[in-house]
């Protein structure tokens, strides 16, 4: 088995925890993993009750997302599997991935957030549906702020008291997450939090 990012041979010794299925096999080498900068930043605003971002959006994060999303390397979904599982595997929480528009999903051949959750073996509910094909990364800050509603809620929400956790790959201006949270809250959800892999600090 080689590191999924740098292709160097992984020579980690198998451990008892791995053998018993408690710990997952590492899919990238420690050198590559150390290049991700763990920040665990938690922020909140009037709509989002909490946004927990695990890593800083540094060069390594950018390369990772490039390979994962644009080179469509779905194997990379396993890289953060155990970190996401520790955070999200909780029956008291309702995990809702930020969806992709069906056309965009077809073009990419997979939806990256769902792939991350599947790789981590976390159950989720796809309550949201994207209404536009437009993509956040291509917009300026001003354009993002004046967007009309991006998401609609597909089903009725059975349990409104449960904590909803939105999951996305990157948190930049927060427009996407706020739109999603607003959609859920308009259907009666009480508390909507979010977990994202990366936090991008750059202001556009």
């Amino acid at each position: 088995m080689n590191c999924l990012l740098c292709d160097k041979r992984l020579d980690n010794q198998p451990t008892w925890q791995q053998l018993l299925g408690i710990a997952k096999m590492q899919s990238i080498c420690t050198a590559c993993f150390d290049l991700f900068e763990r920040i665990d930043s938690v922020e909140e605003d009037e709509i989002l009750d909490s946004v927990h971002s695990l890593y800083a959006y540094n060069e390594q994060a950018r390369d990772y997302l490039h390979q994962f999303k644009f080179l469509q390397d779905i194997a990379l979904a396993t890289v953060f599997a155990s970190e996401l599982r520790i955070l999200l595997n909780d029956p008291k929480k309702m995990i809702v991935p930020i969806p992709m528009h069906p056309i965009n999903k077809r073009n990419r051949t997979f939806a990256q957030v769902e792939a991350l959750l599947k790789a981590a073996n976390i159950s989720y509910q796809s309550y949201l549906q994207k209404t536009t094909e437009s993509v956040m990364g291509e917009k300026t800050r001003a354009q993002r702020l004046e967007m009309t509603e991006l998401f609609e809620v597909i089903d009725d929400i059975p349990n409104k008291e449960i904590v909803f956790i939105l999951v996305d790959d990157i948190y930049t201006t927060g427009t996407t997450l706020r739109h999603a949270a607003r959609a859920l809250k308009s259907k009666g959800a009480r508390r909507v939090e979010a977990v994202t892999l990366f936090r991008s600090k750059r202001e556009k």
């Binding site: 999924l4 469509q72 390397d73 779905i74 194997a75 999903k105 077809r106 073009n107 990419r108 051949t109 997979f110 939806a111 792939a115």
Partner: peptide
């Protein structure tokens, strides 16, 4: 080779890394 559920061909697809 990595296999996955492909949204394009809607089968279990595989790609070369």
């Amino acid at each position: 080779f990595t296999t996955f559920e492909c949204a394009q061909c809607e089968t279990t697809c595989a790609y070369c890394r």
